[in-house]
Design a protein around this nucleic acid. Structure first.
Lengths: 165, 165
DNA sequence: AATAATTTGTTCGTATACAAATGAATTTCA
DNA sequence: TGAAATTCATTTGTATACGAACAAATTATT
């Protein structure tokens, strides 16, 4: 006997713990993976994602799904590709995100009368309710993610990351 | 007539450009997606990945594949799961990374005489050659990624990200 | 008006990323 | 020593993430 699988999506994520190697010997003595910006960004992202899933395991929203909801809420009405640009997602990526939100009836599409190629996406009332419920949690997720840093460090980090965009 | 698809992997990546919304109206006036740590980390990661693929399009290495090569090079001999811990990858993720590196004969597995469950992975001579060739490029990737920041800002950022790990 | 260039949304393919579950081997410990 | 717990590698399923190519619709150019 075992518990059934989660249907929609993994409910929670455990942050992968990185093991520190004991030896200081390296193939290239001057290249330490742990000190590279790419590795540090990837790990910070992992930690944030882990906190995100922990905090929103009930609502079963992924970070990108949440970002899409937020932007549709801001724009009221937005085409799929533009939503992708607003959330920094490739057209092929936003396609799947929107599809899954649509399947869950959190958003709905209406054809654009002025452009036969486009559909305009809006929040459904379910989507609005969910977004209202989730926004305060998202604020806590941000706080939790930044908790290891002081206030000053937090705004420094945000400023530096903005320059790297 | 059209060009054939790339077989192994996408050759290059174009950074997804984020569009800034014109209106300041937001569903929740106090939640701006662009200012959230998660969104900024995601975008910084996207940019780094884009630079990585641009710089290493010839060698056809992904960031995680490269990380695995580096760590195998450092360790000389390492089991699959431990390699995952060293590179901060889930067992299911490192499985695929190692499989693809193995398929390309960049690494090879030898059974562990002391543990019937494990195989120990090593760099092949091809893998050693490739790693030697790629390490200077990886250093340039790090420099290029951090280029928008001054020297001082760079080490500040690395320090803050380390605290977030 | 005819043509060229662009935009929109889609499909296909590859590669992370991770939860959950599992069998086999090993280690821990009562 | 023998049962329990852990570790290793694997399988299945879901969700990004993005390149490449494409058809249809729209816009820009001539």
């Amino acid at each position: 006997m075992h518990k059934p699988r989660v249907s929609q999506m993994a409910s929670q994520r455990n942050l992968v713990r990185q093991e520190k190697p004991e030896t200081a010997h390296r193939f290239a003595s001057d290249y330490a993976l742990e000190d590279q910006i790419g590795h540090l960004l990837r790990r910070a992202n992992q930690r944030h994602t882990s906190i995100f899933f922990e905090s929103l395991s009930d609502q079963k929203l992924t970070p990108t799904q949440f970002a899409a909801l937020v932007k549709i809420g801001d724009e009221k009405e937005v085409s799929q590709n533009r939503l992708g640009r607003l959330t920094a997602m490739d057209p092929a990526t936003i396609l799947g995100v929107v599809k899954r939100l649509g399947d869950r009836k959190l958003i709905a599409a209406h054809p654009d009368p002025n452009d036969g190629r486009r559909s305009l996406w809006r929040l459904s009332s379910r989507g609005e309710r969910l977004l209202t419920e989730v926004l305060p949690i998202a604020t806590r997720i941000t706080r939790h993610t930044l908790a290891p840093l002081s206030r000053g460090e937090q705004s420094t980090l945000l400023g530096l990351l903005r320059k790297l965009s």
